[in-house]
C-alpha cells in the first residue's frame, strides 16, 4: 500500500483548522485540565492521582475526541469524500490520529506540569505514555467508525472509556469477583504498574511485560480498526 506524507499532512492540517473552530473539542480538553488544577492545590498528589488524570486525558481526548472527529466525518459525509480521493487508509487514519496524538500528549504534559509529576525515568515513563496514547487513539477511531454520528459516538465512547481508562479503580474487587481478573491486563493498569515500578528503580528490562501487554492492545485495536475501515469503505 502506498503512503504519502503530503496527503497525511494535508488531512492533519485540515483537522487542525477545523478543530480550532470546534467548541465541543476544546471544552472536552478542558475537563482533565480543570481536574489537574484542582489536584495541584492538594498537599500531596499520589501516583494514583497522577494516573487518574493521565488516564482521564487518554479517555477524554484520545478516545472521546478521536471518536467524535471520525464520527463527524461520517455524519457529514466527508469521510466518503476522503475515501474516494487518492488518500489511502494509513494516510486518512494517520492524518486524523496525528491531531489527536498532539492534543492528547499536550494535555497530558500540561496536566503533569500542573500537578508537579516528576517521574524517576522520563524516557521509560514518557515512552509508555506515548504508546498508551496510540492505543487510546486506535480505540477512539474504532468507536468513531462503528457509529454514525457524534451523539452516537459519545454514547458508545462512555462505557469504553470507563472500562479502559478507569478499570484500575476496580482492582480491589478482583479477589471477591475473580471474573474481573482481566482488569489486571488493561493498558491503564499496566501503565500505572509500570510507573510505580519506575519509582522503585525498575529499568526497561524489568518492565518489558508491561510494554508487551500495552503493545498487544495496540496491535489488536489497530487490526480491528483496519478491518472496520475496510468494511465501511464498501457499502454492502
Amino acid at each position: 500500500m502506498t503512503f504519502s506524507m503530503k496527503r497525511m499532512y494535508a488531512i492533519f492540517q485540515k483537522d487542525v483548522r477545523d478543530l480550532s473552530k470546534n467548541m465541543y473539542i476544546t471544552t472536552t480538553m478542558l475537563m482533565p485540565l480543570a481536574l489537574a488544577i484542582f489536584y495541584s492545590t492538594m498537599d500531596e498528589v499520589t501516583m494514583d492521582m497522577h494516573y487518574l488524570i493521565i488516564n482521564l486525558c487518554f479517555a477524554a481526548v484520545g478516545v472521546f475526541v478521536q471518536s467524535a472527529i471520525i464520527a463527524e466525518e461520517k455524519e457529514k459525509n466527508t469521510l466518503r469524500g476522503l475515501m474516494l480521493s487518492p488518500a489511502t487508509l494509513p494516510e486518512i487514519l494517520g492524518g486524523k490520529s496525528l491531531v489527536t496524538l498532539v492534543l492528547t500528549m499536550a494535555t497530558v504534559l500540561i496536566c503533569a506540569l500542573l500537578m508537579g509529576y516528576e517521574p524517576a525515568n522520563y524516557m521509560i515513563v514518557g515512552g509508555a505514555i506515548l504508546i498508551s496514547c496510540f492505543f487510546y487513539i486506535a480505540l477512539g477511531t474504532l468507536v468513531g467508525l462503528l457509529t454514525k454520528s457524534v451523539v452516537e459516538a459519545s454514547v458508545l465512547a462512555l462505557p469504553v472509556m470507563f472500562i479502559f481508562s478507569f478499570g484500575s479503580l476496580f482492582l480491589t474487587l478482583i479477589e471477591e469477583y475473580p471474573i474481573l481478573s482481566f482488569i489486571e491486563y488493561l493498558p491503564s493498569v499496566q501503565l500505572v504498574e509500570l510507573a510505580i515500578e519506575v519509582e522503585t528503580g525498575a529499568v526497561f528490562a524489568d518492565l518489558w511485560s508491561n510494554f508487551a501487554i500495552i503493545l498487544a492492545w495496540i496491535v489488536l485495536a489497530s487490526l480491528l480498526t483496519a478491518v472496520v475501515y475496510k468494511k465501511k469503505e464498501m457499502d454492502a
Partner: peptide, 11 residues
C-alpha cells in the same frame, strides 16, 4: 480551505 485539502490530496 476545503479546496486546498483536495489540491493536496490530488497533488
Amino acid at each position: 480551505d476545503n479546496l486546498k485539502l483536495y489540491c493536496n490530496l490530488y497533488d
